[in-house]
């Protein structure tokens, strides 16, 4: 299933946030969206998943999601959004219960996603017992459980320290390498973008417009921490964004 954005614009009253965004998200690819803070990239992600509606333009699904897909558009949030009163298991079963999946069927799915995220030993743990990286892996496992057509990832690694971030990036790459998934990955971290993105959408400061789309052909599993070519790409992206970021930083916060 592909996603197509056509002419998406958005404003809050007189305050223009996004201007005329058109974008294609092809199946089985990871599209990273980068841009200075306040450029509307997270808002864009909420449009894609239907949590908010743009004032103009359309978000379209092309093709039908696979049969066993419970929740085609599935988010992974920056703050993990785990229910603190439910165990790891309970947090995953939460999203299955409403589909009538209980008992053995649920157990099988939970077992599978926990294995894939290397959490099998922590099924009974409560979120408060887990480190930030583990929490985000639980959130990823929860997203995998509904077998999404598109994963919508909103700065998923921003709340983690840099070592954990590296580990999780490796995890995401190995997950994708085993079964490629479609993802929109919003981040302000260019290193993440060059590691995970098949294409990188660079946005301008507010009102957000697409400045350039950079394509990276190097297969994900061959990208490493500190690769020279990736460093080059990152430098290039930074050049594109530098002035925008400076101007965005000098803006007054609009509340």
């Amino acid at each position: 299933m592909d996603i197509r954005l056509s002419g998406v614009s958005h404003s809050y009253d007189d305050f223009e946030v996004l201007r005329d965004i058109s974008l294609e998200i092809p199946s089985g690819r990871i599209v990273c969206i980068v841009g200075p803070s306040g450029c509307g990239k997270s808002t864009l992600l909420r449009f894609i998943g239907g949590l908010e509606q743009p004032t103009q333009g359309k978000v379209l699904q092309i093709g039908t999601p696979p049969q066993d897909c419970l929740n085609p558009l599935t988010y992974i949030f920056q703050d993990f959004a785990l229910l603190p009163w439910r165990s790891v298991r309970g947090n995953i079963s939460l999203v299955l219960e409403d589909h009538g999946i209980r008992g053995a069927r649920a157990d099988a799915i939970i077992q599978d996603v926990l294995t894939r995220t290397k959490l099998s030993d922590f099924a009974k743990a409560l979120p408060k017992q887990l480190s930030g990286g583990m929490k985000q892996r639980v959130a990823i496992a929860r997203a995998l459980a509904v077998n999404p057509a598109v994963m919508l990832m909103d700065e998923p690694l921003s709340a983690l320290d840099s070592q954990t971030r590296e580990l999780l990036m490796d995890d995401l790459i190995s997950l994708w390498s085993r079964t490629p998934f479609t993802a929109v990955y919003v981040t302000h971290n260019l290193a993440e973008a060059v590691r995970l993105g098949h294409s990188i959408v660079v946005m301008s400061r507010r009102p957000g417009e697409i400045r350039e789309v950079v394509h990276l052909d190097k297969p994900l599993d061959q990208r490493q921490y500190g690769d020279a070519d990736l460093e080059e790409q990152q430098k290039y992206l930074w050049q594109l964004m530098r002035e925008e970021a400076r101007a965005a930083d000098a803006e007054l916060v609009h509340v």
Partner: peptide
């Protein structure tokens, strides 16, 4: 953000109240 998470997973209104809001 927990309620938004519930909505993003298509939980029913009743499920969100019972499993997220009340606890």
């Amino acid at each position: 953000s927990l309620i938004r998470m519930g909505q993003s997973f298509n939980l029913s209104w009743f499920s969100i109240v019972r499993k997220i809001v009340l606890p």
